[in-house]
């Protein structure tokens, strides 16, 4: 799985460079986030702007990251959801769980 990370304004921005987040690669994302949280990160911004398809296991991996962040007294927020990906969060009502920002800049400003 292609993921780029960079630190911006004290946030760790994680850009998922995959068009699909599904049962084939979601465990990898979940493990990747879990590993990052072993460090001292306080806020993860997951940039999903390159993701055009997400399934239930992709949603599950992000939810796992969200819960894991809370356990580590950190936070995980989402940014850049394409409309159909956003619709999946709404369908499953996970939009009520996650903080979702239009793009990374907004996520950084919404700190």
């Amino acid at each position: 799985m292609q993921i780029q990370t960079e630190t911006r304004d004290g946030n760790l921005v994680l850009s998922v460079q995959e068009p699909r987040l599904d049962a084939h690669n979601s465990d990898e994302l979940k493990d990747y986030i879990a590993k990052l949280l072993e460090g001292n990160e306080s806020r993860l911004v997951v940039d999903l702007s390159a993701v055009r398809f997400i399934d239930s296991s992709g949603l599950g991996a992000l939810l796992s990251g969200y819960k894991n962040a809370n356990l580590h007294r950190a936070s995980l927020v989402l940014a850049g959801l394409q409309p159909r990906v956003q619709a999946m969060f709404e369908l499953t009502r996970l939009n009520r769980v996650f903080e979702i920002y239009r793009d990374v800049d907004e996520a950084l400003a919404g700190h």
Binding site: D55, G60, L63
Partner: peptide, 9 residues
């Protein structure tokens, strides 16, 4: 929870 949404969808 992390699992169990597939058939719901």
């Amino acid at each position: 929870v992390e699992h169990g949404r597939g058939l719901f969808l």
